[in-house]
Design a protein around this nucleic acid. Sequence first.
DNA 1: TAACACCTGTTC
DNA 2: GAACAGGTGTTA
Length: 247
Amino acid sequence: METIVRGLKPLEGRTIVRAVVVDGKLRPSLSGMRLPREIRRVRRRGKYIVFSLDRGFLVFHLRMTGQLVLEGSPADGARAVFVLDEGFLSFRDRRRLATAEYSRELRLELGPEPLKDLSWLPGALKASRRPIKLWLMDQRNIAGIGNIYAAEILFSAGIDPRRPANSLRSGEVRRLMEAIPAVLEAAIAHRGTTFSDYRDASGSPGGFQKLLRVYQRAGEPCPRCGTPIQRVELGGRGTYFCPRCQK
DNA sequence: TAACACCTGTTC
DNA sequence: GAACAGGTGTTA
């Protein structure tokens, strides 16, 4: 989302003159948005993409397969198209789980950003017995960590994803506090992770998938010790880790 | 806190 | 035909 938002920055100062919803079954709720509206600011909050308009907010969540592509013409297969004073913003989504919503007030119930100060983390972890991976993925605790990066962060920190959050020792918490920004910044440096649908705002795939060390690598040797990467299910999500390096 | 719902597509 | 997929919101 960070990579996409950076690519959408040119929208600041542009005006939405028309919104064409092609797919009625889509889940955008744009009712109440009167046009034209000026886009004042484009930013990310957790995994949400937020447009601050001259009146109200346009909030996107791309879920698994959503795309926001900024081009000179509407993209093929777009489920909705925002016609701008210059250019077109196309909203695509193969699985139709993504959302686009206009609201007068912005209220997102999200924890702190993972790329800012994390000194609050040790205290917060002590308050939960949930498996650390589920804790990291709970957006109310810390915003923006999904299934891929949770796996990579825990590998980097050498922590078993099933461990209760409050069981981490201080050295492990310290490693976690280093791993969170390290993994996310590396992923941003490579412009995101593409398996099938992820594209940035100009339609380009990311490159971080080549650098994943455990995610979707069940049975392959751990890059650190050679032990086969294991897949278990945690909270209904595929969870990849090295049983030897992650204790 | 777990299961399921929302959707569709790909791969085994 | 079954399993799996970058996520979250609701229900039991």
